[in-house]
């Protein structure tokens, strides 16, 4: 089984971004960038499937600025075999990313694509579902457990009221939720080794896909700040405030 894992380079999850003063976007200059946390989980799952002898090759792909190659190297240090970088000037929307990934799927013919459930910058939670739609493949989104049973994939999915289990024929799309696994840290020797793994770079434009954005950002604003509250000294005072001041109980 060959597995493709799309990975995105995003502002590190520990950093709180600021909206630009002119309201055109968020300031990302000079901020620490990392692999999208859900994509680390996706890479980890693929690498584990390889370690179990279920997968034969793990290919990682990233779409974005040339620096996204750092993210691909990180994925290769975790155990992915090779990387593909599609360079673009701006950050394409999920529809465009899904269309580009469809082209990569046509070239690489993986049996399984594992994506993150959501990129923590645009918080779209859409690309995996869209790729599945474009390919006409079944989808196991928000996956918290994967098992191979009789040549199919059994997927536990996190849903609002609990957990749902579905069974998918291959080829299929999976999107990783937080509890699928705990990603490993790449060891220093593996980081060194990853530098020698193959990384192919091409311009996204060369794939002949229309990636023009459909959404125009009219403005970006800071959310309303909550006004500072107070510290109460006792349970009695808290109850009094909730009753008489906030009137919520």
């Amino acid at each position: 089984m060959k597995i493709l894992v799309p990975v995105k380079r995003v502002v590190d999850y520990n950093i709180r971004v600021r909206v630009k003063a002119d309201g055109t976007g968020v300031e990302t200059n000079g901020l620490k960038m990392s692999m999208n946390p859900f994509d680390e989980i996706a890479v980890e799952e693929a690498v584990r499937l390889k370690e179990k002898g279920i997968a034969t090759e793990v290919v990682v792909v990233s779409i974005g600025e040339p620096k996204a190659q750092d993210t691909l190297r990180t994925a290769m240090a975790m155990g992915a075999d090779r990387g593909i970088l599609l360079t673009t000037d701006n950050s394409p929307e999920p529809l465009a990313v899904a269309k580009l990934l469809k082209e990569i799927v046509a070239r690489e013919t993986p049996d399984l694509v594992i994506l993150g459930k959501q990129a923590i910058d645009d918080d779209m939670n859409a690309t995996g579902q869209m790729l599945a739609g474009l390919l006409g493949w079944p989808q196991g989104t928000f996956a918290s457990k994967l098992e191979q049973i009789d040549g199919r994939l059994q997927v536990s999915r996190e849903i609002d009221g609990g957990t749902e289990t579905v069974s998918l024929a291959l080829p299929a799309i999976i999107t990783a939720d937080l509890r699928l696994n705990e990603p490993r840290y790449a060891s220093l020797p593996n980081i060194m080794k990853a530098k020698k793994k193959p990384l192919e770079t091409m311009e996204a434009a060369s794939l002949g896909v229309d990636i023009a954005p459909r959404l125009t950002v009219v403005s970006v604003a800071e959310p309303a700040e909550r006004k500072a509250g107070i510290t109460v000294g006792s349970v009695a005072e808290l109850v009094e405030k909730l009753r008489n001041e906030a009137k919520v109980i």
């Binding site: 929307e93 939670n125 859409a126 579902q129 739609g133 989104t141 928000f142 849903i159 609002d160 954005p213």
Partner: peptide, 19 residues
């Protein structure tokens, strides 16, 4: 919701729409 987020992007892709 979990159902909406599962289905809406797939339908959007089939309609060539960015959700």
């Amino acid at each position: 919701s979990a159902i909406g987020k599962n289905v809406a992007p797939r339908a959007a892709a089939l309609l060539d729409v960015q959700p």
